[in-house]
């Protein structure tokens, strides 16, 4: 059995409520081969209508695959766009 991946999540402002723990960075485990979408679904963040996602400091899409030690930024885009 493949061990889970441990990644670091930075949920900004009120998005922190989706993740266990405290602090700006939360460590979570996801199954091997998981994507950002899998992470979002696992913690219920995919319920948010619009998200901006970062992977290791760069803009990322939901289908980006995760690797151990990755840092995932989860934000709501600032208003004014469409």
């Amino acid at each position: 059995m493949t061990p889970p991946l441990r990644v670091r999540v930075r949920p900004y402002a009120d998005l922190a409520r989706y993740f266990p723990g405290t602090g700006a960075v939360r460590e979570v485990d996801v199954p091997a081969g998981a994507t950002i979408q899998d992470l979002l679904e696992r913690y219920g963040v995919d319920a948010e209508p619009r998200l901006t996602l970062g992977l290791n400091g760069e803009l990322a899409q939901r289908d980006a695959a995760l690797a151990a030690g990755d840092v995932v930024d989860i934000l709501v885009p600032m208003s004014g766009g469409a």
């Binding site: 900004y12 402002a13 996602l53 970062g54 930024d73 934000l75 709501v76 885009p77 600032m78």
Partner: peptide, 11 residues
């Protein structure tokens, strides 16, 4: 100004 990082990521 809580989500400024989104602008940085989006460029």
């Amino acid at each position: 100004g809580a989500m400024v990082k989104s602008k940085q990521l989006e460029g």
